[in-house]
Amino acid sequence: MISAVSKPSLWTGLIAGLGLAVLFVLSLAVGVSPLPLNKVLSDPEAMQLLAVSRLPRTFAAVLCGAGLAIAGLIMQTLSRNRFVEPATAGTAQSAELGILLVTLLFPAAALWVKTLVAGGAALVGTSVFLATAHRLPPQQPFLVPLFGIVYGGVIGAVATFAAWQADLLQFLSVWTNGEFSGVLRGRYELLWIAALMVAVAWIVADRLTIMALGREASIGLGIDYARMMQIGLVIVSVITALAVVIVGMIPFVGLAVPNIVSRLMGDNVRGTLGWVAAGGAGLVLACDIAGRLLRYPYEIPVGTVMGVVGGAVFLWLLFRRGGHG
């Protein structure tokens, strides 16, 4: 909202935009069957490949990255803790459990029904997490993410057990480990809802910034704290459920990107939201491209690459901060 300060220069924006564009084009070009970009328009086969596989895959990476980064940002705002994100707060695991149960009970349900159920489960799981997180003492900020990780682990254990009994472990691993290689036209379009959620976050950006100041400051400024909490929860749950159902969970995006952006530009969500979304999209695109190139022509799932990259970034953030205080 306050435009006079904290706006990064036009150049920074241009360079970032250019970087994202380069990644986007790279993602279109890299793959098992070569796609010479200069011939796309003349070669119908290449055109087909682009439209059916590469473009959907690239869009999916951008949407997932941007969405999960924003979901992380909102989780950190709602829990007032910098080390929380959907993958470490039981959100993703609840979504996995939800889609597993609906797959067990109604195997024939449409994808959007499954997504809806996964979203509902994520909502419940995250609400329980937040209710508990607010009871943990604020002087010990590391307890909250720790609680979240183990809480997610317990829900994950239930899901694994259920999947094991029903011989669905294969499916579960598809949902728990993000991978874009299966993304084709006609199978990823629901992900555009994530973009819608990012737009909703943009609309309530100022309120999110105020939420981070705490309950009392929010009420003092006339914000309906409980309702904003619900809106935030819905955004997080929907984005996470979409990611889990369509490509599988990608860890650490929601953690690393908002933290780095906060370091560089502060926490005024109106000013940082675009950067967080772009950063998430760029990071996931880059990891997906790396996953395609590391062991060419085989692919390494983006979830695995991100586990390594994001884990290292998280530890760096942790000890950087630990060194300060």
Partner: peptide, 16 residues
């Protein structure tokens, strides 16, 4: 708390 969290993340990192 920091140590615990770091340990858990180390776990995720090594698994990945």
């Amino acid at each position: 708390g920091l140590m615990l969290l770091a340990g858990v993340v180390f776990g995720v990192l090594f698994r990945s």
